[in-house]
Amino acid sequence: MAAERREWERFDRRRRIGRFLLTLVAAVAVVGSWRFMDTGIVRPETIPREVGDLLTRMYPPDVAYTARIVGPLVETVQIAALGTIGALVLAVPVALLAAENTTPNAATFWLGKVVVTVSRSVNTIVWALFFVVLFGSGPLAGAVAIAFRSVGFLGKLLGEEIEEIDFGQVEAVRAAGASSAQVLLYGILPQVKPALVGLSIYRWDINIRDSTVLGFVGAGGIGVQLFRAVNAFAWQSVATVLIVILGVVVATESLSAYTRGLVR
């Protein structure tokens, strides 16, 4: 305990330099990005006024418009439900391929991973653009778009659940002479069932939010009414639609949280 006095430091020298560099990179990235963007702001002080102006034009919401949006709203919920079921059907094989312990070989494993990645990287609205070309505009294209977008999410998370299962049970079912379909049904499915139900409900809740915008590319739902109202500058109707969407989203979110609580 002689001479040198040492100060406590949270990080050693290398980590400190690393953290400093990372902060520096982040700062340069933000400043560089701002300068790169051609924002075209001439009078920045007018922005709050313009936003405020828009909000005042939305008040009061046009209550009479509610009657016109009930149908599209129901359609939105239907698109989300159908899309989720479709995704579930497609996601089970994808999950089995993308899970290391159930996939037949390395090639199928990568196939599963590629399907998951492509599905997740392409936004719902882009899938919708594609399926509107295929099925014509309307809610069917929206439902299929929702399904294709959700496959990646469900396939990835379900695949991770399958990787966690107790393989002893699977071996036991197989040893009892079960066919591969029976192994799936009695060895694997019961172990991932709670996760399967929970994830589907969670995804349904996300899909409700996603399907509110499908109308923008002609794929049905409440988005059609919303964008029609926006293009007509009918801001009071826009406010009504927004409030209704908010209500539905909050309701489904609580329903989803409650149901997932039961399953877990």
């Binding site: 828009l54 609205i125 939010r209 996603d210 509110t212 915008v213 923008f216 988005g223 919303l226 964008f227 926006v230 826009v238 927004l242 969407i245 908010l246 989203v249 909050v250």
Partner: peptide, 10 residues
């Protein structure tokens, strides 16, 4: 609650 597209259009 609102999708980025909706916020974006507004």
């Amino acid at each position: 609650a609102f999708n980025a597209i909706i916020v974006g259009i507004i």
